[in-house]
Design a protein around this nucleic acid. Structure first.
Length: 913
RNA sequence: GGGUGCGUGGCUCAGUUGGUCAGAGCGCACGGUUCACAUCCGUGAGGUCACUGGUUCGAGUCCAGUCGCGCCCACCA
C-alpha cells in the first residue's frame, strides 16, 4: 500500500508501470494470521504474468541469461520428477533476473514420438482397436487430440509450479516452424552424406513394430539357460556341439565358428554341418573372436539376429538369413515353426532337440537381455533398412568443446561419462516405423527409382520428371528434433532477432539420465547446425525418488501420489520447491519425504510470522522504514545487536551469491533458512522486543530500520527458493519498487567481527543460564537474580542488560553487573562463559554435590582439550607450517582454556569450603 | 568386463579450495497458554563420519585398497 504512495511521492521508484497498469499485487489488505499458500499463489502468478515480468527486456549492451526448458513429453501429466526441473530452472532464472540481466526462459513440450504413440495405442486398445483400424491419418489426428489435452494439463501444472517462463515464446516440437528446422537439419546432413540409408542390424522392438536406437535398449541381468546343441556333419559321422542362449535363432544360422588355434576342432574346419530339424547345411569356419574357453568353444553364427555374428558374417561373406517377421513370429525360413512366436518356437524347438537326442545339456545361465525402453519387450536384433546419422564426424567437435571448456558440465564427473560415450559413439539409427512424428523428407520415384531429399515437398521426380513419387513412410527419432531445441525454438534456420540475441543459451539443466539421449545430441547438432555451442553450462540434477527409493515415473502404480498439484495443494508450491532445492545436491538422487515438505511449509509460515511481527511494530510509520537502495551502514543509533545482525546478514548475502554462482543451490538455500530462523527470529527479533517497547524512540526506530532492512533483504535472497511467499510478504513490508520478482539482488555490506564476537558471548551466556535453569527445574516464568563479573565486557553487558534480563528471564532489580567481584557469592550456582563469571544465587535449589560433580566433569573435559591444544602448539611443524590465523586461533583458544580452568577451580574451591 | 556414485546420531540427508568440540530436519526425552508464530518456544540425549593403510603439522574432507548398496556403459555365444 505505502509502496505505491511512496512511488507517487517520487521516492526513486519507477512510477511508469503504475501509471500504465495501475495495479498492485492481488493480495488481501492484511496478512492472514497464518501463512496460507492456497490463497496467494495463483493470484500472484497471474499478476506476474499479466505484468509481463516473465518477458525479457532486450538490451543489446548486456549479455542475456537464457535457459531452454527441457520439453516434457505430451504423454501425460507431470509428476514430481518433472517438478525438480521447473524448480531448479526457475530458481536460476529468478536469480539472474534479479541481478538485472535480460533473462529468458523458453518453455515447450515434446511430441515424444514412440512414447506418445504408445499411450494413444493403449487407449485405442481399450476400445478394442489398433492404429491400423484407424489408418494413418485418423490415428495421427487422434494423437493430436491427446496432445491438446495433455499439453493443457502440463502448462497448467507448470503455472502452478510458479515457472516464470516467457509463455509467448512457447514451442512444441511439431510446430510448423520447428518442423521446418527438423527438415533443414535433415537435408543439410543428408547433403553432406552424414545421413545415409541402408540395411543393417538394428534393435527391433517387435511390440512397437519399429527400430530403436542403441540408447533405447535397456539391458537387464536375467537368469536364463545356456543350451548345448549338437550339429551333425553332413556325412553324419561326427558332430560339433554349440552353446546358445537363444535356440530359436538356430533356424537362421549360416555357420559354426571356432577359434583358429583350437586343437579340438582343427579337422572340422571347412566341413559342413547340418542344422537340426531343418537340415540346412552350414560351414564350420574359424574366427579370432571365438573364445575357446567359453561353452564348447564352438559358436553358432546367426548374422541376421546377433550383432557379433553380423560382423562375423561380413568378414566371411556368410549369407544372412532372417528367420523372423516384424512381430517376432517365425517366418518361412523356420520351416515347421513358421508362424510361431519366437518364445513358442524356442520351447518347441528345444523339445524337438531333446526328442532327437541332440540337446546335450542345459545349464543355468545369467546374462543381460535387452528390453525396449518404452514397452519392455525383449528387443530383437534384426536386419532392417533404416536411416542413420554418421556420428563420428559430429562427435569430434562435440568432444572438443567440452575438452577446451567452452561447455562446462556440472557436476564435473559427468564429463568423463560424456567423453567415454562420445569417443565410442556409433551411428545413430534415426528412422522409426511409427506414424507420430516428423516424416523423413525423402521421396522415391516409382519410375526411375531415384531418391530425393528435399526441404519442400516435391511434386515430381527431379531426375525423370515422373509424378509417381512417394514419401518415405518412416518418421524420425523424437530425439532428432529435441537435438535442435535450443535454436529451433529461437527461430532457426531463420536469422531471427531472438536467435541473434539469445543464442547460444546459457544453462542447459536436466536430469543426468538423458545426458546421451539429449544433451550429447544437442551439442553435436548445435555445433554442426549453428557453428556455436548451444549452451555454455550443463547442469545435471539427480532423480527424484519416492520414500522407498524408487525412481518416480508414470509407470509406478501409485504415481498419483506424486502429482505435484496434490503436494502443492497440501503444503504450497514454496514448500515443495524449497524441499526439492535444498534436499538435493547436483547429480545425486534424492528421496522426497513428506515430513521434509511439511518442515519447509513451516519455514514459510515462520517467515510470515516474522513479517507480521515486524509490521506490527512499525508504529504505523511504515514509509519511514523503506530499506535504502544501498547497504545499510551502521550509524550512531544502532547498538551492538543491530550491528551483529547486519554483519551476519551481509555475510550471508556474500555467501548465498557465491554459492548460487557456483551452482550450489541447496547449500545457499539452507544458509538462508538457518539465518532467518536461527539468528533473525530466534535471537534478533527477541532482542528487539525490549527496545521496541522502550521509551528510547531513537533506539526503537533503529531496531525497526534494521528489522525491515534485514528481513526485506532475506526475502530477496529467498525469492528464487520461495517465490510466492516471499513476493507476498514483500508486498506487505516497506519496500521500493513494484514487485519482488524484479527487485535487485541484494548487495553485501560491511561485516563487524567485534559485534559478532560480543553478541556471540551474550548468546552463550543466555544459553548457559537457560540450561542451568532447566537442569535445576527453575519454573520457566520465574525471574531470578544474577551476579556477573564481566571484566572488560562490562560496558557491553550494561548496554545489553535489559536484553539479557529478557532472554534469560532475570530479575532486573537483582541483576548485578560488575567488572570484578571482591569475593565469590555464597550459595550460588557459578557459570563460566566466554571469560566472564556468572553467579545465580539459587540457594534453595542448590545441590552442592551435584555442582561439584558438574564442575569436575567440566574440568576433566577442559583438561583433555587443553592437552590437545598444548600438544598441537608444542608441535614445531604445526607452528611453522600451518597458516598464521590457524595458529593464532589455537593460541587464543588455549588462553581461554587456561582462564576457564582457573575460574572453574576457584568455583570448586568455594563449593568445597 | 569397464566406469561411476553412495555408505555421517533411530530415520532422511548437508558438510567444494583439508584447519574450532562434525551440522540440520524429522523422531525421541523433559519443560512451556509472555501480546509474530503450537505450522511454535526453551532444554537435553544420541555419531570411533563403513573398514584398512597412506599423504599431511592437521583428514568426514586428498590417495590406494577392502566390504556393502545403487546406477551407467559394454558385440559375456
Amino acid at each position: 500500500m505505502w509502496a505505491i504512495r511512496l512511488e507517487m511521492a517520487g521516492c526513486g521508484c519507477d512510477p511508469r508501470r503504475n501509471d500504465i497498469m495501475g495495479k498492485t499485487a492481488p493480495l488481501p489488505d492484511q496478512m492472514s494470521k497464518t501463512y496460507n499458500a492456497g490463497e496467494i499463489e495463483q493470484p500472484l502468478y497471474r499478476w506476474w504474468e499479466i505484468e509481463g515480468y516473465f518477458k525479457p527486456r532486450i538490451d543489446p549492451s548486456r549479455k542475456p541469461f537464457v535457459i531452454s526448458m527441457p520439453p516434457p513429453n505430451v504423454t501425460g501429466a507431470l509428476h514430481l520428477g518433472h517438478a525438480i526441473v521447473s524448480c531448479i530452472e526457475d530458481a536460476l532464472i529468478r536469480y539472474h533476473r534479479m541481478t538485472g540481466r535480460p533473462t529468458l526462459w523458453v518453455p515447450g513440450t515434446d511430441h515424444a514420438g514412440i512414447a506418445t504413440q504408445n499411450v494413444v495405442e493403449r487407449e485405442l486398445a481399450k476400445e478394442g482397436l489398433t492404429r491400423h483400424h484407424l489408418g494413418r491419418t485418423k490415428f495421427v489426428e487422434r494423437v493430436w487430440e491427446w496432445k491438446r489435452v495433455f499439453h493443457q494439463r502440463i502448462t497448467d501444472q507448470h503455472r502452478r509450479l510458479g515457472v516464470s517462463c516467457d509463455w509467448d515464446r512457447e514451442r512444441f516440437t511439431m510446430d510448423e516452424d520447428l518442423s521446418r528446422a527438423v527438415r533443414e537439419a535433415f537435408v543439410r546432413l543428408y547433403e553432406r552424406n552424414l545421413i545415409y540409408r541402408g540395411a543393417y542390424l538394428v534393435n527391433w522392438c517387435p511390440r512397437c513394430g519399429t527400430a530403436i536406437s542403441d540408447l533405447e535398449v535397456e539391458h537387464e541381468e536375467e537368469d536364463t539357460s545356456l543350451w548345448h546343441v549338437r550339429y551333425w556333419t553332413e556325412e553324419g559321422d561326427r558332430y560339433i556341439t554349440v552353446a546358445t542362449t537363444r535356440p530359436e535363432t538356430i533356424l537362421g544360422d549360416t555357420a559354426v565358428a571356432v577359434n583358429p588355434s583350437d586343437p579340438r576342432y582343427g579337422d572340422m574346419v571347412g566341413r559342413k554341418v547340418r542344422l537340426p530339424v531343418i537340415n540346412r547345411l552350414i560351414p564350420v569356419i574359424v574366427d579370432e573372436v571365438v573364445d575357446s574357453s567359453f561353452g564348447t568353444g564352438a559358436v553358432k553364427v546367426t548374422p541376421a539376429h546377433d550383432p557379433v555374428d553380423y560382423e562375423m558374417g561380413i568378414r566371411h561373406g556368410l549369407p544372412v538369413i532372417n528367420a523372423m517377421n516384424d512381430d517376432a513370429t517365425m517366418n518361412r525360413e523356420a520351416g515347421p515353426y513358421q508362424g510361431q512366436d519366437r518364445i513358442e518356437c524356442r520351447r518347441n524347438l528345444v523339445a524337438d532337440l531333446e526328442a532327437m537326442g541332440d540337446l546335450v545339456k542345459v545349464e543355468p545361465y545369467h546374462h543381460s537381455v535387452g528390453h525396449c525402453q518404452r514397452c519392455h519387450t525383449i528387443v530383437e536384433p534384426r536386419i532392417s533398412t533404416q536411416w542413420f546419422v554418421r556420428t563420428k564426424p559430429l562427435a569430434q567437435p562435440a568432444l572438443q568443446v567440452v575438452r577446451d571448456g567452452r561447455i562446462r558440465i556440472i557436476p564435473e564427473r559427468f564429463t568423463k561419462v560424456y567423453y567415454e560415450w562420445m569417443e565410442n559413439i556409433r551411428d545413430w539409427c534415426i528412422s522409426r516405423q511409427l506414424w507420430w512424428g516428423h516424416r523423413i523428407p525423402v521421396w522415391y520415384c516409382d519410375g526411375c527409382g531415384a531418391q530425393t531429399c528435399s526441404r519442400v515437398d516435391p511434386t515430381e521426380c527431379p531426375h525423370c520428371g515422373s509424378h509417381a513419387i512417394h514419401q518415405d513412410e518412416d518418421v524420425l527419432d523424437t530425439w532428432f528434433s529435441s537435438g535442435l531445441w535450443p535454436f529451433s525454438t529461437l527461430g532457426w534456420p531463420e536469422k531471427t532477432e531472438d536467435l541473434d540475441y539469445f543464442y547460444p543459451t546459457s544453462v542447459l539443466e536436466t536430469a543426468y539420465d538423458i545426458l546421451f539421449f539429449w544433451v550429447a545430441r544437442m551439442i553435436m547438432l548445435g555445433l554442426d547446425m549453428t557453428g556455436e555451442v548451444p549452451f555454455d553450462t550443463v547442469y545435471l540434477h539427480g532423480l527424484v525418488r519416492d520414500e522407498e527409493g524408487r525412481k518416480i515415473s508414470k509407470s509406478l502404480p501409485d504415481a498419483w501420489r506424486y502429482d505435484p498439484l496434490l503436494v502443492i495443494e497440501e503444503y504450497g508450491q514454496d514448500a515443495l520447491r524449497f524441499t526439492l532445492l535444498t534436499g538435493s545436491t547436483p547429480g545425486n538422487d534424492m528421496k522426497l519425504s513428506q515430513s521434509r515438505i511439511e518442515a519447509n511449509r513451516n519455514f514459510a509460515n515462520k517467515i510470515w510470522q516474522a513479517a507480521r511481527f515486524v509490521l506490527g511494530n512499525l508504529d504505523g510509520r511504515a514509509p519511514e522504514f523503506v530499506p535504502p537502495a544501498k547497504p545499510l551502514a551502521p550509524d550512531a543509533q544502532v547498538n551492538t545487536a543491530d550491528r551483529w545482525i547486519l554483519s551476519r546478514y551481509h555475510r550471508l548475502v556474500g555467501q548465498v551469491t557465491r554459492l548460487i554462482d557456483g551452482y550450489q543451490l541447496g547449500e545457499a538455500g539452507r544458509q538462508v533458512y538457518e539465518f532467518l530462523w536461527g539468528e533473525y527470529c530466534d535471537w534478533y527479533i527477541e532482542m528487539t522486543k525490549v527496545r521496541l517497547r522502550d521509551r528510547d524512540q531513537a533506539s526503537a526506530d533503529a531496531a525497526r530500520r534494521v528489522l525491515v532492512y534485514v528481513l526485506e533483504g532475506c526475502l530477496r535472497l529467498l525469492h528464487p527458493y520461495m517465490p510466492f511467499a516471499t513476493e507476498a510478504i514483500w508486498q506487505y513490508l516497506p519496500h521500493r519498487g513494484q514487485a519482488l520478482i524484479v527487485a535487485p539482488w541484494p548487495q553485501g555490506g560491511a561485516v563487524d567481527d567485534a559485534a559478532e564476537e560480543q553478541i556471540g558471548t551474550l548468546m552463550e551466556l543466555v544459553r548457559t543460564i537457560r540450561n542451568a535453569r532447566s537442569e535445576y527445574g527453575v519454573e520457566p516464568g520465574r525471574r531470578i537474580a544474577a551476579i556477573i563479573a564481566a571484566g572488560e565486557r562490562l560496558p557491553f553487558l550494561q548496554e545489553q542488560a535489559s536484553i539479557l534480563e529478557a532472554l534469560a528471564r532475570l530479575d532486573g532489580g537483582r541483576l548485578r553487573l560488575e567488572e570484578s567481584l571482591d569475593s565469590t557469592p555464597d550459595k550460588a550456582l557459578a557459570l563460566v562463559v566466554g571469560g566472564l563469571d556468572c553467579y545465580l544465587p539459587l540457594a534453595s535449589l542448590l545441590d552442592l554435590d551435584r555442582e561439584r560433580a558438574r564442575v569436575r566433569t567440566d574440568l576433566e573435559r577442559l583438561a583433555a582439550e587443553t592437552a590437545r591444544s598444548e600438544k598441537l602448539l608444542a608441535n614445531r611443524d604445526f607452528v611453522a607450517k600451518a597458516p598464521q590465523v590457524v595458529v593464532e586461533r589455537e593460541r587464543d583458544k588455549l588462553a581461554g582454556y587456561h582462564e576457564r580452568r582457573e575460574k572453574l577451580q576457584e568455583q570448586l574451591h568455594s563449593l568445597s569450603s
